[in-house]
């Protein structure tokens, strides 16, 4: 009888191992290079437009970059949807759901930080870019547990850069536009390019 119960323990452990490995196997890989590339290009173009049109007030800066974030999210969703349709896969697959859930809290905090600056004191807008960078880095790091390995490192890059920016003296808003373009635009474009040349075909799940 005891050996049979030992077999049962072993069966439960095996089921747990299978579950863990199946979760690990369903890593999110869909359209990562196009998503990163398009976010990068949008970021760079947005920074250039911001410098040209000179959104120099705190409120304008906050509203402008929050709108850019919405555009980037929409772009990402459309690209992911297009890839899912192309591969005849469900859009809302379990890996997509897990990545969205991982990104959600930090994105929500970023949005609330922007709204708080608009509502309370738009002069604090100069502090928003590093806060957004740290939150974005945390979001990427969380999502990295369900994505390819490089994303956690990419997230750490944003966290470190954001923290360094917080410790340094706050930048003027025109310079902050350029910095946003460099980090949210340039870094994404570069990573998108890297993924384009290194990603394997067969963007499963």
């Amino acid at each position: 009888m005891q050996s049979l119960f030992m077999q049962t323990d072993w069966a439960s452990e095996n089921l747990q191992v299978i579950r863990t490995l199946m979760e690990r196997g369903a890593v999110y890989r869909r359209a990562l290079a196009p998503v990163m590339g398009s976010i990068g290009l949008t970021g760079l173009a947005s920074a250039a437009l911001a410098v040209i049109f000179g959104f120099d007030t705190g409120a304008a800066f906050t509203c402008y970059w929050m709108a850019v974030a919405v555009v980037c999210l929409a772009e990402a969703l459309l690209l992911v949807r297009r890839q899912a349709l192309k591969d005849h896969e469900p859009f809302w697959s379990p890996p997509t759901r897990r990545v969205t859930q991982a990104l959600g809290p930090a994105f929500f905090c970023g949005m609330m930080a922007g709204l708080a600056v608009l509502r309370v004191d738009s002069a604090a807008a100069r502090l928003l870019p590093p806060v957004w960078m740290v939150l974005y880095g945390c979001a990427l790091h969380s999502a990295g547990f369900f994505m390819t390995r490089g994303f956690k490192l990419f997230g750490w890059g944003f966290i470190v850069a954001g923290c360094s920016w917080v410790l340094a003296s706050p930048l003027s808003l025109p310079v902050a536009h350029c910095a946003m373009g460099f980090f949210f635009g340039g870094a994404h474009a570069a990573y998108g390019l890297y993924l384009h040349f290194t990603e394997k075909p067969g963007n499963a799940t």
Binding site: M22, G25, K200, G202, A204
Partner: peptide, 17 residues
């Protein structure tokens, strides 16, 4: 068993993955 578990969760996986 781990190979089967990983492959069961994805349409296909590369050898290196």
């Amino acid at each position: 068993l781990p190979i089967m578990s990983l492959l069961a969760a994805a349409p296909e996986l590369s050898f290196t993955d």
